[in-house]
Design a protein around this nucleic acid. Structure first.
Lengths: 145, 145
DNA sequence: CTCCAACCTTACGTGAACGTAAGATAGAGA
DNA sequence: TCTCTATCTTACGTTCACGTAAGGTTGGAG
């Protein structure tokens, strides 16, 4: 796929994709003739989607996202090696353990944020509960009058 | 309280507070002599805390935060009127209904974000589950060998 | 009243994250 | 092969959210 298609597919702009390449969030110049068009695989697109998603949801900056991207790339490499027929079971096991650690890390980030939102949500609901209670009181007072 | 105290109390800087005033996220110049020191109430501090919190958790920009702040100020005004002895029960009811709507709106924002995080969380957990399953398979295979 | 730290205003600087414009080029289709 | 259209590189522009520096003022402690 070319950059314009990818941009349209994930809902962003070519400029953003190039920028992400510039700061290391996208595949980069590996084996591309200077001036040649960029081409992307389906996996690249998927990775970009995840990056944009995490950026939006967690509000991460380039440095933090870079860490996650490194993990994403590690995931891809490991998955490929895992799928290879020549990989030994022992090696497969180590790959899986590593993949597990990566996912764990992402889950930790997500869960931390989720906990904070839960806290806020609970506080808002309590506030709403108090308002409802006062409304009850008021309507009872009106009924007695 | 003065600006430095407030900044320290909520973990930010005087500059940020002045900036928030500039863009309408903080009380402003109402009745302050030009050049005089800014003073803040406990309520102001609390409002600032909420703004910073929502900014951090939801990643909102000035415009979206401004909406929430308008609501915060409405909340304060309404609460004060509610506490006044001269307010009629009918008026109190209307105030409560309005407050309820405000909190509802905030809850909506928070819940939407929470749902997205839940979705991501579920996906990550499923991914982890698949990895665990494959590890199972591998160890079983090793046991049979 | 005096002093001085904390504050004031004004204004320019900064980093992140792109937008936009210009001129040259690549590469898929007729 | 020729033709466009999407891409390319380069580079300056922009908005947001503050940081920082300069020179003057406020206002509470002593």
């Amino acid at each position: 796929m070319r950059i314009g298609e990818v941009a349209a597919a994930v809902g962003t702009t070519p400029r953003t994709i190039r920028y992400y390449e510039e700061i290391g969030l996208m595949p980069g110049t590996a084996g591309r003739e200077p001036g040649a068009h960029r081409t992307y695989s389906e996996d690249d697109v998927e990775q970009l989607r995840e990056v944009l998603r995490l950026k939006g949801l967690l509000g991460l900056g380039l440095d933090e996202l870079a860490e996650l991207v490194a993990n994403q790339e590690a995931r891809r490499t490991l998955r490929e090696e895992f799928r290879s027929a020549t990989t030994s079971p022992a090696r497969r096991t180590r790959i899986l353990v590593e993949l597990d650690a990566i996912v764990d890390h992402q889950l930790e980030l997500v869960d931390r944020r989720r906990a904070q939102l839960d806290q806020l949500d609970a506080e808002l609901r309590e506030r709403r509960g108090r308002i409802a209670a006062r409304l009850e009181e008021l309507s009872e007072g009106a009924a007695r009058a």
